[in-house]
Every structure is written in structure tokens, then in C-alpha cells.
């Protein structure tokens, strides 16, 4: 009788890799990805419009890096990072339950923790690429006349790093929430635009209870412009410590998500 020859030797890491490649493919094909990809390109339109206004209409001149910084703070940090992490993070568990496809995964010789981590890695990479495409293209459009300036590139990479860390941490949090809450999107919206958007402006140490505080602590300073009020009251944590906190939070959320996903019984409704 034939037996699968590789399964006994298949380690945890190979399982994660196999799940990752499966969901990276599925994620790219999903309709939701196309919608969010389009949303993530909105800043590109803003950047193109600003450049057009500057070149053709000869409107008042604002430096490209200034507009770029404002787009990052107002659109990416306050909105897109949260929305992408929320919708992709919570769906890691819920889409398998709603689509009733969980059975195909849990009847394979793959630990449940590997399923969750593989899918988390695939979706996180997908949204990082989505975010990075918009950020890089906006940067190129807005700074077309200053691309030889290394300081601008340093700013771009700093922003990319900050946004990536934000996505990694928030997605881990929403993955965890999605493993045990049925209405995780609703909770996520309240958390993102309630808790995170309010507590970060509290003075003193209270603001350290939100993820956004550590992300904003990593922004290149000073961030000036129309949306600099979004950094109001920020008493930044030193960058090194902020990175460590974000990474520790990510690890804790993922460990909790794996624990819940492995132990919890999910009943697919008929």
C-alpha cells in the first residue's frame, strides 16, 4: 500500500513554507486583494495630481518630500496600515470558517500552528507589498526632481521600515483577535479607530498602551506640514526600544493566536 513518503520527515518550518506558498498564491488571486490594492494606490493619484499641479498649472510650490511625509502620516499610518492589517489579519481564521474550507487544512499532516503562521506570513507579505508599491511610486512621482539626494532615499526607507513594522504588528494582533472572536471586524474597527486613535494622544505614559505610539516613535523627525497635528502630544519612546516593543508584541500576539487556534474547536455551521 502506497504511503506518503515525505510526511514523517516534514518539519514545522517546511509546513509553514508550504502553507505560505499556498496562501500567497490564493491571496494574490482573491478579489479582496484587488480592491485593497486599488485603495492602496490612492496616494499615487494624490501624488500625480500634486505633481501635475506643480508642473502644468504652476501652483504654489511645495517640496515633494513634504507632501510625501504628509501622505505617509495622514493616509498610511492613520488609515491604510490599520485597514489592511484588520481585514487581512482577521480573515486568516474567519475566511476558512465562513468558506468552510478549514476541513481541507486540518485534515492534512500540518500542525495547526504552522497553518496559522504560514497564512499570517503570506498575508503579511502581500499587504506589505501592496503598501510598498503605493509608497515607492508616490515617492518617485513627488521627488522626481530630487532623486539624486540620498537624504530623501533615507527618508523613504525609514518610512517603509516603519510602515512594515506597523503592518507586521497590527496583523499579528488582528490574527489573534480573529481566532476567537466571531465579529472580529467590528471589534477591530472599534479598536483601530477608537482605542488606537484616542489613547495615542493622551499625555504621559498612557499613550504607551497603543501600538500606534511605538510606530509613530519611529518616524523621521521632525514631521512637518498640514498633518503634523497627528503627532500632537507624542512623547516618543527611543527608536530602539520602540522596535523591540513592536517585535515582542508581534511574537506574543502570534503565540497567543497559535495557542487559541490549536486548542479551540471550530464548528462549521451547516
Amino acid at each position: 500500500m502506497a504511503q506518503p513518503e515525505n510526511t514523517s520527515s516534514m518539519g514545522f518550518v517546511s509546513s509553514v513554507k508550504n502553507v505560505f506558498s499556498f496562501y500567497f498564491l490564493l491571496g494574490r488571486k482573491a478579489r479582496r486583494t484587488k480592491v485593497f490594492y486599488f485603495i492602496s494606490l490612492i496616494p499615487l493619484m494624490i501624488a500625480a495630481f500634486a505633481k501635475f499641479a506643480e508642473l502644468v498649472l504652476q501652483t504654489h510650490h511645495l517640496e515633494g518630500i513634504y507632501i510625501f511625509s504628509n501622505i505617509i502620516v495622514a493616509f498610511y499610518l492613520q488609515f491604510l496600515v490599520l485597514i489592511l492589517a484588520l481585514f487581512f489579519g482577521t480573515s486568516i481564521c474567519s475566511e476558512e470558517l465562513e468558506g468552510k474550507t478549514l476541513t481541507y487544512l486540518t485534515t492534512r499532516p500540518v500542525p495547526k500552528a504552522a497553518l496559522l503562521l504560514g497564512k499570517y506570513a503570506a498575508y503579511t507579505l502581500l499587504i506589505i507589498l501592496m503598501m510598498a508599491a503605493g509608497v515607492i511610486l508616490s515617492f518617485l512621482i513627488l521627488n522626481a526632481d530630487g532623486l539624486t539626494d540620498p537624504s530623501r532615499w533615507r527618508i523613504l526607507f525609514r518610512y517603509l521600515g516603519v510602515l512594515t513594522l506597523g503592518l507586521v504588528c497590527y496583523t499579528a494582533f488582528f490574527t489573534f483577535i480573529g481566532t476567537f472572536l466571531k465579529r472580529s471586524i467590528l471589534f477591530g474597527l472599534i479598536f483601530s479607530f477608537g482605542w488606537e486613535n484616542v489613547i495615542q494622544y493622551f499625555p504621559g505614559s498612557t499613550q504607551r498602551f497603543v501600538i500606534a505610539h511605538y510606530i509613530k516613535s519611529l518616524l523621521p523627525s521632525p514631521t512637518t506640514g498640514r498633518f503634523s497635528f497627528l503627532l500632537f502630544q507624542l512623547e516618543p519612546t527611543p527608536p530602539g526600544r520602540a522596535v523591540v516593543v513592536l517585535l515582542v508584541l508581534t511574537a506574543v500576539f502570534l503565540a497567543l493566536a497559535c495557542l487559541v487556534f490549536s486548542k479551540k474547536e471550530y464548528i462549521l455551521e451547516d
Binding site: Q3, P4, S8, K100, Y104, T107, P109, P111, D270
Partner: peptide, 13 residues
């Protein structure tokens, strides 16, 4: 999970 190398399951849904 290791058991599922030896099991095939065809769900109803």
C-alpha cells in the same frame, strides 16, 4: 496532525 498522512477525508460541504 501526523495521523492525517494516512487519512483521506471527503467532507460533505
Amino acid at each position: 496532525p501526523s495521523l492525517f498522512a494516512r487519512i483521506g477525508f471527503c467532507p460533505e460541504q
